[in-house]
Design a binder for these strands. Structure first.
Lengths: 331, 331
DNA sequence: TTGTAAGCGTTATCAA
DNA sequence: TTGATAACGCTTACAA
């Protein structure tokens, strides 16, 4: 009953043609305020809602944007993803768009391909970027508008990212300014571009201070607890001022390992993280971290994609919305 | 080029009418194997894909199903949600359906309402059920087909759930069989129906053994670390054989608190969880837990919803796909 | 300012 | 077994 009313019904009821109704609704073309108002009232009263599918067909649009969710996302990635999703939703739903999810594997883009080929979306957002990214590669050759969240070496892509380089550099600089010179860096999955960026940020701070980090204290590709534990052993043996972890997962592994070994933070080891989380904020001791607003990032990506869909050829953007939060773990 | 080919193009190229082509593709109505084959080959060669929007308009369908993602999902819920999503995707994409996400708050169902009223979905899956669930309430009165994952006291809803009652009861029974009589139960958010179900499962096992749990050892509504810590103090004072936590989050909080206080598991306190996770499997000690296949759950929900959309009026289902995994923490 | 009519790409109902 | 032709609900030239 409520869902079945169409633009024809309105036209008939109000004694005007359906194109008039259409214009009154969309506001396109000249139309008298009087009829606009009549239509508005009728719509209000009978709770008319346009049929998105029919609108889509008429305009060759779907009003859906595809968001790619990697099937191998782990628990910590999911929180990031969920926030991006919220941001995307914030930015696109007011414009009548919705999120169509595409679950894909690293090298299996079939699901994404379906979405694109069957005209189910007007554009796509990639929520992470990999080196040698199959999804980005496919989208590029498909002609479908898309943007990526995160940075890619491929400069043809429209990228939306936090300024991780500046952010990581800034946290490192702050630590250097506190007099800590000997810092170790613990990084994860090397196929993620952000891992590399974070390392560069770390090194940049040293460079800007006229110093050089100790290459022996940079540990990359650490992805599991045993490996992290081993690095911790090494770091404790060598002796460092601060151990900087690239994300909360690594930080968590280090912290739990420290507890087991009765290593006191910050007395025996100072700790900082390039990615904040409520866990790090509430743990004891609370951990110094870089706080980044992923929701805003998602919103920016959504807006940018809508621009692309509208035909603009925007540049990517780098958002500066991080803050360094100093906590007990580096005091 | 590849994306622009329509059913008309095929008809013209093959010298037949577009209705013939349509039939050849869908297989509906009588049609000669010869023409079917010709069409099939052409489609293959030129990689024709039907326009989902046009199909949708013609059939009054969208080939999208809405999946509701609560905006207040926390990190642990997200893993569950992500797995459900995979299962849903597994079951619906082979049938041409895709997932449209709706991010909604507890009491704010606007986004869901939009999806329904604008005809953007053919059905909806609710991935959690609350007492007094606004989303379920709205969907019911909207007439939109939907199913819920998890159990609800509202028996009119089509519910897909694991047999949590049996599962929790079974884990508890196993512990009772090991001779542990004095068990404490630690439960979380009381507005989630599953919390209540788990408690009942716990009690059921006692009942079946002709015993009764100690009401003083049942702690409900524990949602943060301080509260969990306080319960731990209480439990240690009273002395118990096993502390059973309802989910991995609570279990994690207890474990980290035990580390801080140097309480050894299982020597000083045995621990079990009604929800498994890789964290519990890999921690030291590994924790006894109930393992549940959420992906299969999502798949079942997807299938069930498609039945409803197809016009069936199926019963809800209870899936028995859990297993009790005994680990070091209860030895 | 408004109405007419031709799409948008399919499916579905008739005849042929 | 096939082919016209009318939907599906909306947008958009082009006329009036």
């Amino acid at each position: 009953m409520s869902g079945k009313i169409t633009i024809d019904d309105i036209a008939e009821a109000l004694g005007m043609s359906k194109s008039t109704v259409s214009r009154a609704i969309s506001g396109k073309g000249r139309i008298s305020p009087a009829t606009t108002e009549r239509v508005r009232q009728y719509i209000e009263k009978y709770n008319y809602k346009p049929n998105a599918v029919a609108q889509g067909l008429a305009q060759s649009k779907t009003y859906n944007i595809g968001v790619v969710c990697p099937i191998d996302y782990e628990i910590f990635d999911l929180r990031y993803f969920h926030r991006c999703l919220q941001g995307i939703s914030d930015s696109i739903t007011p414009r009548g768009y919705d999120i169509l999810m595409s679950m894909i594997g690293r090298s299996d883009v079939d699901n994404l391909r379906r979405l694109v080929e069957n005209h189910k979306v007007d554009g796509v957002i990639l929520t992470r970027t990999l080196f040698d990214d199959k999804a980005a590669e496919y989208l590029k050759q498909s002609g479908m508008p898309f943007v990526v969240i995160g940075s890619s070496p491929d400069k043809e892509l429209i990228q939306i990212d936090n300024d991780h380089l500046a952010a990581c550099s800034e946290l490192t600089s702050v630590l250097l300014a506190k007099g800590y010179r000997r810092m170790a860096l613990l990084g994860g999955d090397g196929t993620h571009i952000i891992t590399e960026t974070r390392r560069r940020g770390f090194e940049l701070a040293y460079k800007q201070a006229g110093l050089k980090p100790d290459a022996d204290l940079i540990y990359m590709g650490v992805e599991d607890h045993p490996h992290a534990a081993q690095v911790l052993t090494d770091v404790m043996k060598k002796g460092v001022d601060v151990l900087v972890c690239m994300d909360e997962k690594l930080t968590g592994m280090v912290m739990s390992e420290c507890r087991i070994r009765h290593i006191r933070i910050p007395e025996q080891l100072r700790l900082a993280s390039f990615y904040n989380s409520s866990f790090l904020a509430n743990s004891s001791p609370a951990v110094t971290a870089l706080d980044i607003d992923d929701r805003r990032l998602g919103a920016a990506a959504g807006e940018k994609l809508l621009e692309v869909i509208a035909g603009a050829q925007p540049e990517g953007v780098v958002i500066r919305n991080y803050q360094v939060i100093l906590r007990e773990s580096t005091s």
